[in-house]
Amino acid sequence: MSENTDLAEITYVRGDATVPFGKGVKVIAHVCNDLGGWGKGFVLALSRRWPEPEAAYRRWHRERATNDFGLGALQLVRVDRYLWVANLIGQRGIRTGSKGVPVRYEAIDTALATLGDRALELGASVHMPRIGCGLAGGKWGRVEPLVAARLAGRGVAVTVYDHD
């Protein structure tokens, strides 16, 4: 196995992922559910800044019979000249029930792989809260290796924001 010399790292900072640090093209990544619901958690902070990610997500869900909406899918929404929001479908439903928590690690992994491709095409860094670990009920110990493999391991700089 050849060694990848283009490894990037995951940087952890305190702050607001909707106000990403640094220069250049940036993508703010977050996890969405597969029901078309948008109204709790990190999405509220996104919607306070830009109407486009929510509108695009709701349209994507509404037209799902004719598009790729579903677990593991990724939607990139441009909100500014050098800023995009990545809607990753990585949770089944919105409630913890008999089948456990809503997070679906395989779906997050698939969406992150696609995000890695798109970030490299855009020459973008990726910024996120601890995706899948809020309302989705996931564990960062399971998500972080996916972020490391699909993004940082491919040379995409990642910043993870822990809100105060």
Rank of each mutant, 00 (worst) to 15 (best):
M1G: 15
S2M: 12
S2G: 14
E3P: 11
N4T: 14
T5A: 14
T5Q: 12
L7D: 04
L7M: 03
A8P: 09
A8N: 12
I10A: 08
T11S: 03
Y12D: 02
R14H: 13
G15A: 01
G15F: 01
G15W: 02
G15P: 03
A17D: 06
A17F: 15
T18Y: 03
F21H: 13
F21Y: 14
K23H: 05
G24C: 08
G24Y: 07
G24W: 10
K26R: 13
V27K: 08
I28E: 02
A29C: 09
C32K: 01
L35G: 03
G36V: 01
G37F: 06
W38T: 11
K40W: 01
F42Q: 08
V43N: 09
A45H: 09
L46P: 00
S47H: 09
S47G: 06
R49P: 11
W50Y: 15
P53V: 08
E54G: 07
A56V: 15
A56Q: 12
W60M: 02
H61F: 15
R62D: 02
E63K: 08
R64S: 14
R64P: 02
N67V: 12
D68F: 06
F69C: 10
G70V: 03
A73G: 02
A73I: 05
A73D: 07
L76A: 10
L76I: 12
V77E: 04
R78H: 02
R81V: 07
Y82K: 13
Y82H: 10
Y82E: 13
L83M: 11
L83A: 07
A86D: 03
N87R: 10
N87L: 07
L88E: 08
G90S: 11
Q91D: 11
Q91K: 09
Q91W: 04
G93E: 00
G93F: 00
I94L: 07
I94Q: 06
I94H: 01
R95V: 09
G97Q: 07
G97N: 12
S98P: 12
S98E: 15
S98A: 14
S98C: 03
S98Q: 11
K99P: 00
V101F: 08
P102H: 01
V103D: 11
Y105I: 13
Y105D: 02
E106M: 01
A107H: 15
D109A: 14
T110E: 09
A111F: 03
L112T: 12
L115Y: 04
G116W: 01
G116V: 04
D117W: 11
R118M: 10
L122G: 06
L122Y: 06
G123M: 05
G123D: 07
H127E: 00
M128R: 01
P129T: 08
R130M: 05
I131V: 14
G132K: 01
G134S: 13
L135I: 08
A136F: 09
G138P: 07
K139H: 13
R142G: 00
P145W: 09
V147L: 09
A148Q: 15
A148R: 15
A149F: 08
A152K: 07
G153A: 05
V156H: 07
V156L: 12
V156M: 06
A157Y: 04
V158M: 03
Y161D: 07
D162Y: 10
H163K: 15
H163R: 15
